[in-house]
Each structure stands twice: as structure tokens, then as C-alpha cells.
């Protein structure tokens, strides 16, 4: 039996939630991720598709099928950000797919696997020049912003290496959030399908929480209180540092893990800081959105 999981036309954070609903409700079999009608993807959404494929294989032991987007623009973009290279490791494809499009990618950071600390170094080294150009020229950030941005990237990627217990991916892109914000943004997405925050923290902290221990309390502990699974008191500072920097830039920072999601929410987005009871999905899915700087008196 083949289970068809339709991929939303707009594959962003909301599109990912739709995908997760289908994933969580499935009972096994051969999955077909039907992405033919995808018209737009965000870094979070496209990593979400990879994560859903990996999670399906992990859960049911069967390699899923993928129907790639029919839109030439989307297909070309996915080639440039190296989606197909990574998707080939997870999915069997139906239809013809160009493995890699010709031409230079305009992405801030193409889809990049995160498996080791060396990968974190590579990401930080690779992104610097592009980040300087994008943050400075297009988003109006001051020159040191690229260094703060690199710290954010480094810490979110290390979250995979240190806590997930499996590999993950990172990607970053800049685009115009016309509808939501009317400004350009940089979006960083980092995902894995590992043990998640509850799994990572359980051994050290679950007992203390008793019946209240859940994905939600685990996220609160890590995100709000800097709790870590390690006894080393220096652990857990990365997320706190990211929160502080994202707040300074009036950005949006969210982590989804298991059935819960927690966020640092700026005034320009209508979202609850904590959500629970979401469809269960393994690992951690992180998104950072940094908006274009509005000059004084520029308004929104």
C-alpha cells in the first residue's frame, strides 16, 4: 500500500506542519511525498521535507518516494540549493530530476549536512562573505552583524552535533516577506530527526519535573532557563545567546520538538510563544528570521 503525503504549495513553516500532520497520522507502508504542486519553498520548509523523508525511513524502515515539484523555477532553485543531492540519500524519485542545476546559487547557505564539529567550522567559514554582503547591503545591518550572525549559525548547528544523536541539515536564504512583513528577511533553518529536546534532557531532568515532564517543559527548560543534559555548568548558553541577539535585531526564533514549539516572538508576527499538542515529530526544527533594518522614521 502506498500512502500519499501531499506537500503544500507553499512549503514554509505552515506547509511543514501540514506535512507533519500526514506523517504523524500514517500507519506505515510505502510513502509517496507528492511535491508536484509546490510553488514556493522556504529553508525551513525544504529542510522539513528532507526531515520528513528521513523520519519516515527511521519510523517504518522503508525508503519513501518523492514526486518532485513540476514548476521549473522551483525545480531549478532546488537544484541550486543542492536539495536533490541530499534528497537522493533519502527518497526514491519518480520522474526525471536534474541532480544539480548549472550556475551559481544565490542562497546565503545551500542545504548543508551537519554531522560533526568540523562541519560547523566549514559552515561558519563558508557563509562569511555572502552573509556580509546580504546583511550589510540588503538588510542594512552594521558590519559586525556578520560575526553575530555566524555565532547564531554556529550555535544552532552545534545543537545537532551535541544533542541530536544523529545528523541534520542547515540552510539559510534571504527573501522578501511581502505579506507577513513587507520587508526582506534572512531565514536560517536547522533540522534533525534525532532524540529531540525531551529525549536529550530526560536523563538529567525528567525526574525533577515528574508528571509535568513533556516536550513543552523540556523546551521551556532549555530555551528559557538554559538547562542542558550535561552537568557541566557552562552548557546551555548557546540558545540563551541566540535569544539575546535575535531580540536585539527584533527577529523571530523558534524551536519545534516533539509535540511542542517555543518561540521568541517579535511584535511584527502574530504567534504564541509556546504551543503544545502539535502532531508528534522527532528531533528538533529550528528557525531564525532576521528582518531588514528599518531606518529611523522609515516605518513599516
Amino acid at each position: 500500500m502506498t500512502v500519499v503525503l501531499p506537500v503544500a504549495e507553499t512549503l514554509d513553516d505552515r506547509g511543514f506542519e501540514t506535512l507533519v500532520s500526514g506523517w504523524a497520522g500514517a500507519e506505515g507502508g510505502r510513502a509517496l511525498f507528492d511535491a508536484r504542486h509546490v510553488r514556493w519553498v522556504s529553508p525551513y520548509g525544504i529542510l522539513g521535507l528532507l526531515a520528513a523523508g528521513a523520519a519516515w525511513q527511521e519510523r517504518f524502515g522503508e525508503r519513501p518516494l518523492l514526486e518532485p515539484p513540476e514548476s521549473k523555477e522551483v525545480a531549478s532553485y532546488l537544484g541550486r540549493i543542492r536539495f536533490y543531492e541530499h534528497a537522493h540519500e533519502l527518497f526514491d524519485f519518480q520522474g526525471h530530476v536534474r541532480k544539480r542545476a548549472a550556475g551559481e546559487s544565490d542562497a546565503l547557505l545551500e542545504i548543508t549536512p551537519v554531522r560533526s564539529h568540523q562541519d560547523v567550522h566549514d559552515v561558519v567559514d563558508r557563509v562569511r562573505d555572502r552573509a556580509a554582503a546580504i546583511l550589510g547591503k540588503r538588510l542594512g545591518y552594521p558590519p559586525p552583524a556578520v560575526l553575530h550572525f555566524s555565532v547564531i549559525l554556529s550555535e544552532v548547528c552545534q545543537n545537532i552535533v551535541e544533542h541530536a544523536g544523529t545528523d541534520g541539515w542547515v540552510s539559510a536564504q534571504t527573501y522578501n516577506w511581502k505579506q507577513r512583513l513587507g520587508r526582506q528577511v534572512v531565514v536560517i533553518a536547522v533540522m534533525d530527526v534525532g532524540m529531540g529536546f525531551r529525549g536529550s534532557l530526560a536523563r538529567e531532568h525528567a525526574q525533577r519535573y515528574g508528571d509535568r515532564w513533556s516536550d513543552e517543559t523540556a523546551l521551556e527548560a532549555a530555551f528559557l532557563h538554559g538547562v542542558s543534559r550535561y552537568r557541566d555548568p557552562g552548557r546551555g548558553q548557546g540558545l540563551q545567546g541566540i535569544r539575546k541577539q535575535v531580540l536585539r535585531w527584533n527577529g523571530f526564533f523558534t524551536i519545534r520538538s516533539g509535540t511542542a514549539q517555543i518561540a521568541e516572538v517579535p511584535d511584527w508576527i502574530d504567534k504564541q510563544p509556546i504551543a503544545s499538542g502539535l502532531p508528534d515529530f522527532p528531533g528538533a526544527q529550528i528557525q531564525v528570521v532576521l528582518p531588514q533594518v528599518v531606518p529611523p522614521g522609515g516605518g513599516d
Binding site: L147, S154, Q158
Partner: peptide, 11 residues
């Protein structure tokens, strides 16, 4: 030193 992250500063 270019980038200094929190984890490395801690170490």
C-alpha cells in the same frame, strides 16, 4: 579572532 561563539568562549 573573527567569530567567537558561546561554546568556545566557555571552553
Amino acid at each position: 579572532v573573527g567569530v567567537l561563539d558561546f561554546s568556545c568562549a566557555d571552553e
